[in-house]
Write a protein that binds this DNA or RNA. Structure first.
Lengths: 124, 124
DNA sequence: CGGGATCCGTTGGGATACTG
DNA sequence: CAGTATCCCAACGGATCCCG
């Protein structure tokens, strides 16, 4: 009996699950931008730079749904909408920051490995 | 002057970049499985359970390219191929583990937030 | 200003069949 | 056993237009 992986499968699926949420093309950029404090729609948009309005909307809705950000509407003319990280969002950003630092520190090694691999493939 | 985000954009893109690699549907599952030691193709496949052979191949190639796993072929009949984490792969698994533990611990809160959000939407 | 709706190309990923 | 090759569908994501 005694399988080699008692519970890691379930656990890892939880991780895989959350990673598919925040690991999309924009979620982390948005979270990082909001880490500086509440921001308006276009502030985030300009902070990121090349995100389409559609994807920013979609991403913000998704983050809101998962409880990572709050959305506050001021019924003024013109309308104003502020987005802000929740406690959950800020907690999430902690382990993410750990991964972030590793990523920043090791981007070079990954690119080297990739260049090496592609070089071998090209020769072969 | 003094922009609100001096360097976080670049850094965050590095993170976003790596997350798009290992944040796909299967990479982390594979890494976790290989964390137990070297394994053969079908061992990994069965360890994960519902992954298609195509995606396992693709995922392993990708991880190999980025220098996270090594691929060792034994030219026997029938052929045998072992996959194993590299040092880089094991290093990566450390911050990932941090995120993993957070994910496992907070899956409930995310699901609650989601149920709440969807409940509100349904009423509205 | 902050979106929603629509169209459309690109990519991810599963099923199946074939190969060394 | 460990792939490769092909087909095919669904989801992602950008562009554009419209609305309160």
């Amino acid at each position: 009996m005694k399988p080699r992986h008692p519970h890691i499968t379930k656990d890892c699926q939880a991780v895989s699950d959350i990673l598919q949420r925040i690991g999309d093309k924009w979620s982390l950029l948005v979270v990082q931008n909001l880490g500086e404090g509440p921001q308006r729609f276009n502030e985030i948009k300009h902070g990121i730079g090349n995100i389409s309005q559609k994807m920013l909307t979609t991403t913000l809705r998704s983050l809101e749904r998962d409880g990572f950000v709050t959305r506050t509407v001021f019924p003024t003319i013109p309308p104003r909408v502020d987005y802000e990280l929740t406690d959950l969002g800020r907690e999430l950003s902690i382990p993410v920051k750990g991964l972030a630092e590793w990523a920043i520190a090791n981007t070079g090694r990954i690119n080297e490995a990739r260049a090496r691999f592609d070089g071998i493939k090209a020769v072969a």
